[in-house]
Amino acid sequence: MLKVADIETFYGPSQALFGVTLEVAAGEMVALMGRNGMGKTTTIRSIFGLTPASRGTIEFESQNIRRLAAYRIAKAGLGLVPEGRRCFPNLSVRENLLVTARPGGWTLEKVETLFPRLEERRAQMAKTLSGGEQQMLAIGRALMTNPRLLVLDEATEGLAPVIRQEIWRAIRLLKEQGQATLLVDKSLSEILPIADRCTILEKGCTVWDGKPAALDSTVRDRYLGV
């Protein structure tokens, strides 16, 4: 479905990615891992054309998307939940969900069933929501565009444990429904049981790729230990 091969990305003169390769197949949940500053978010930004990769290939459903404008990439069927629970603060919950919606399996009702809190708060300004609710809204907004591949960047970072549980429950539900997902997260205990594959980045390169079961303590200490 998504094939990223050997991409290199620069922020001005400084190179951030030196050869990232990763793949997500239909219905698969892939976890993109690595320590802070290793290039996870840059990889996501490159996939979405926000910081375009200058070398390598990015293919989505056999279409080369590397040089497309961000909105065309999203239109091709990728949905992004950006880092830091980003919704539109000055619009209502409903507006956040509806304005960028595209037809498909996910409707307002389904998103509100997934996150009942959003239904309670549908007329409120997004900025009046709690952090966890804003994250739910960000996920709901991405789902409403009915992406064939959903990309979650640090979806549970900095949230209260209760809220994290609720979001992981939603992610597991998406997995059961066969939603193809690329997941950036650090909580191994949550990722390992549900991920189909893990891709680990170090210093802007893909250094490990495999089943979660193969992710033994050597690999963990080498690439993920703090």
């Binding site: 926000l50 909105y71 950006p82 539109f88 603060p89 000055n90 960028t100 991405a142």
Partner: peptide, 24 residues
């Protein structure tokens, strides 16, 4: 209208709007 909300989105953050598949 929906158009107005999209215009507000484009003003607040056009990148975020673009990553949802709408060209500002």
């Amino acid at each position: 209208s929906r158009f107005g909300a999209a215009l507000t989105m484009a003003r607040l953050n056009d990148v975020r709007l673009a990553t949802a598949g709408v060209s500002p």
